[in-house]
Design a binder for these strands. Sequence first.
DNA 1: GCAAAATGCGCAATCGATTGCATTTTTATT
DNA 2: AATAAAAATGCAATCGATTGCGCATTTTGC
Lengths: 342, 342
Amino acid sequence: MIKNSEPTIHDIARELNISASTVSRALNDNPRISLKTKEKIKAVADAMGYRPNTLASNLRNKKSNTIGIVVPLINRHFFSSVISGAEDVAFKAGYNVVISQSNDLADKEINIVQSMFSNRVDGLIISIAMQTKTFDHLKIFRKKNIPLVFFDRAVPEIETDKIVVDDFAGGFRVTQHLIDQGYKRIAHLAGTQNLMAYFDRKKGYLDALRKNNIQFDESLVIINTLTSDEGVSAVQQLMALKNPPDAIFCGNDTTALSAMIFLRDKGIRIPQDIGIVGFSNEPFSKVVSPSISTIAQPGFQMGQKAAELIIRQIETKERTYQTIVLPTELIVRESSSRRSFQ
Amino acid sequence: MIKNSEPTIHDIARELNISASTVSRALNDNPRISLKTKEKIKAVADAMGYRPNTLASNLRNKKSNTIGIVVPLINRHFFSSVISGAEDVAFKAGYNVVISQSNDLADKEINIVQSMFSNRVDGLIISIAMQTKTFDHLKIFRKKNIPLVFFDRAVPEIETDKIVVDDFAGGFRVTQHLIDQGYKRIAHLAGTQNLMAYFDRKKGYLDALRKNNIQFDESLVIINTLTSDEGVSAVQQLMALKNPPDAIFCGNDTTALSAMIFLRDKGIRIPQDIGIVGFSNEPFSKVVSPSISTIAQPGFQMGQKAAELIIRQIETKERTYQTIVLPTELIVRESSSRRSFQ
DNA sequence: GCAAAATGCGCAATCGATTGCATTTTTATT
DNA sequence: AATAAAAATGCAATCGATTGCGCATTTTGC
């Protein structure tokens, strides 16, 4: 143990009086090397505790075997589920995943994406930040022909693989469900409209109203960033109307919960007085009381699919892109089940 | 645009009829290069859309600027919080994070750790898998002097930085709290005892009993892997005793919830008939009904701290290790507040 | 005006693994 | 035994950035 650094193929070669090429080939099971030599080499490699230096290999092969994943916030159930699913598939396929969070900040996202490019990720899976309004940092990936997959929040103007949930159908289904439950004045708490996801949810809401011949009332739609606090202030605003709603389709479960708690504290019964539906099926929505009706978004599955798509882009030359729309599932729970009280 | 590959410092050098060395130094703001040349070089680099190839740089510098993080499951609130906190600190310090999940499987953990080593991560942050019983794959890191930080689930026999929550105090506090609330027969639903965290929680439980002169009853302690289902079967087992408990200290919130739902469905009132306390402060524990008393584990902060520790190890030569014990906080909620009903 | 010092830049090796082509060794054939 | 054919291995360049050392050129001091 004279050397303090890691053994390399050259060390193994010296040990056996052969060339580094042969060692390299042997360790990669190249058929050009005889079985006998291979075994000798592998034995010595083991004995020396040799572990290939992936950095060197990556440089030479111009391939990092790494997939970058960028999400707004790692610490959010939906996103961590996606990451979990993607890591699962990627690891099995021999890829590492490097992960960064944009905190929904455009600047940080640009920073991250450039850093990932410098690290020569083989592909990038991204759900863009709420704040992001320009997309040059992502277009570069397409221009340089580096695999790119959007999930959840995609950029319409960039043509590449996308995997989203059917937000339109989700919004429609929620609204139709509320109508079916006998609610008449249905409000919608919407997210930033420059994100397709929120835009489509609202579109679904509007479409359901139209299909049911319900007059759209602009004062019943509030757009904000869907934080817990904003859920409360939105509901306050809604309840202050001359003609307040009797149901609220919340853009996510967080606002659904905060709205529900606010209303409960005001003595308003849910679902009898007001029906509530959320979106995303956060773990808590099932266990709170009353449990919150919501739309399930298959995060884990989405991550798996995103990884499959990016690996397909990486490993094949074909450049035919698809947009996969995962079906949404309406989960009816207590917060909107008024019929059962009649 | 004849080249389809990325511009390198050599391309910039050729363009300006200077050497690559100068370009490299200029881009790194080396004082040996004149300001005028630097500006020229940077201008050309910008114009060519040059982005340094980190792979090459890493190889030469024998430093990957990458921190590996291994957790049992990404998609778990506590762990994703830790990852989030670590990524935050790491990114600001110029490090990337690669993340993998062991799924609590020893084999996969070994596999991951070796792969991270091959990728020459500058340091490894890990919470070991429940299943892991041998630690050679981690000892290697210490032997090779590669920074290693344990969080949450540490290996006692490996000397390095560790950051854990005060599980003993947490277990003690929970138990004392239940005693203070007037519960007499307190059961404990414990996790695998080869993990310090669960071992210490139980030790705190036992210590609190002793301090209060309460006879320890072995039949009141059940050890399993703390899944939702096992929470139910454990409670079934407890309630089948001749002398069932009137309080349960659950090793995590998941089992606390499943136990609670099971008991509620059996018509048992919580906290009046049976008190329940969980551990970890999962998001849902606050919003379920009754809300679950629990121990807060500062995941995000733990991740930040872990990243700080590993970066300190990476960037300084000193090798004095510390074990940081983050304080636990008992959050008293409805599920154990019997006093308010008396 | 001239040596000494400072400044600016280039050469070439290096990091560790890979690979096209060349060379050596082994095997088969007559 | 000689030669062709096949098999096994080695040489050296390459991936792109970094850096010790050395060589010019300019500046400084007296």
